[in-house]
């Protein structure tokens, strides 16, 4: 083999890059399982959990546009219940701890939603 030193160095760098996640996660010694979410206080969400898992951001986005642009402040849930379209007042009235509900998955997935640029977290006000 010619230029063995350089070639082997290149291969070592390549292997280090490919196996990097393994070393990183082993060194971190943190649980790699999905985070546990705090149980909601209410009994009925505005949509079923399966749908909410993937699409809650769509719902919040639609709510924001409908409330802010069209002034439609109320929403009829699947069980016919009339609810206010409000992140702080409706969502967080059942999911009382932002840091034990929203943040757990968002941190796990490195998602940084800009909800809290405007909204205040109810607990922080109290």
């Amino acid at each position: 083999m010619y230029d063995a030193g350089k070639v082997i160095l290149g291969i070592v760098v390549f292997l280090a890059l490919v196996t990097f996640p393994l070393w990183y996660n082993l060194a971190g010694e943190v649980s790699v399982a999905a985070p546990e979410l705090e149980k909601a206080e209410g009994s009925q969400c505005v949509q079923d959990a399966e749908w909410m898992r993937g699409h809650h951001m769509d719902l919040l986005d639609d709510w924001r546009d409908e409330v802010v642009r069209d002034g439609e402040r109320y929403f009829v849930g699947p069980d016919g219940q009339r609810m206010e379209k409000s992140l702080s007042n409706t969502c967080l009235s059942c999911h009382v701890n932002k840091d034990k509900f929203c943040d757990r998955c968002h941190n796990y997935m490195s998602v940084d939603p800009y909800c809290w640029d405007c909204h205040v977290i109810p607990k922080e006000v109290m």
Partner: peptide, 25 residues
Amino acid sequence: DKTDIVGIKELTMGLVTLSPVVPEG
């Protein structure tokens, strides 16, 4: 067509830590 990405991260983390799981959903 959004899906449950937390479940996906469970799968990918399982793959890279050599303890594979395939979550539901």
